[in-house]
């Protein structure tokens, strides 16, 4: 599904990703862990196509196709979804209207008609129930005045609506209390299938208790420096990152 080879990226002349390799197959869950400033969000943003970042070397393939030159919306149309670490507030556009626009623009890009209003409503109802989101919440301005937890839950609601092939969840667990964490994880698990894949960026083991990864990677200084199975996350939780840094020297 996703194949990243020797990815180098920089922002304002500052090199951040320094030869990152990652392969994610359909049906898999990957966790990316690593200290603050390691480049995890940068990796997510570069995959999603944020233009501020300059890709200086390497390739990003999605289903065998190089997506490096595609606009962010084209990547989205190809099934890339990024749950933002810091979702942006957009006053004046309600959650419902935003997601309707997103879905219909994606359909338009695929040559499909708008989703019939009836189907849209039904889907919104189903998915908001799945994430235990209140009706009133949906008519509020997107992310405006939302608590940290509400923002993250809203990200996963949008993911549920858009049904992406590759979902990257950037610290979706931070700011969530344990109930919200369970709801969000449950939502992600319900959407999992053998045809899609999830990349979970997190600092903590606790989300991985619910969304069990097939692979755990440690990202440090712009590179994946260690890969293991779910037990690696437990080890990191217990021992921190310093032992890995030492291993590297």
């Amino acid at each position: 599904m996703l194949k990243i080879n020797n990815l180098h990226a920089s922002i304002e002349e500052k090199s951040i990703l320094k030869g990152l390799n990652l392969e994610v197959k359909a049906g898999e869950v990957h966790a990316i862990m690593g200290p603050n400033g390691a480049g995890k969000s940068t990796m997510a943003n570069v995959i999603a196509g944020k233009e501020e970042y300059e890709v200086t070397d390497g390739v990003i393939e999605l289903n065998g196709e190089d997506i490096s030159e595609l606009a962010p919306e084209e990547r989205a149309h190809n099934g890339v979804f990024l749950s933002f670490q810091y979702p942006v507030e957009i006053p004046g556009v309600s959650v419902t209207n935003f997601i309707k626009t997103a879905i219909n623009e994606t359909r338009k890009a695929k040559g499909l008609e708008d989703m019939p209003a009836k189907d849209m409503l039904k889907m919104i109802r189903e998915k908001s129930e799945l994430l235990e989101i209140d009706r009133k919440f949906l008519s509020r301005s997107l992310n405006e005045g939302f608590s940290g937890g509400e923002k993250k839950r809203n990200e996963i609601f949008q993911m549920a609506m858009l049904e992406p092939k590759l979902a990257i969840l950037d610290e979706t667990d931070s700011g969530l209390d344990i109930d919200a964490l369970r709801i969000v994880a449950n939502g992600v698990n319900k959407l999992k299938s053998k045809d899609n894949a999830v990349v979970v960026i997190t600092h903590y083991q606790r989300l991985l208790d619910y969304i069990v990864p097939d692979f755990v990677h440690v990202l440090h200084d712009g590179k994946i420096v260690k890969t293991g199975d779910a037990s690696l996350a437990l080890e990191l939780e217990a021992k921190g990152y310093d032992w890995i840094k030492k291993e590297l020297v």
Binding site: A48, G49, K50, E51, A71, P72, E73, R75, A76, H77, V80, F81, L82, F84, P87, V88, E89, I90, F98, I99, T101, A102, I103, E105, T106, A109, Q158, L162
Partner: peptide, 12 residues
Amino acid sequence: ALFYMQQRGIPQ
């Protein structure tokens, strides 16, 4: 905000 929207499939 523009990038956020594009990420959700809304063209620039």
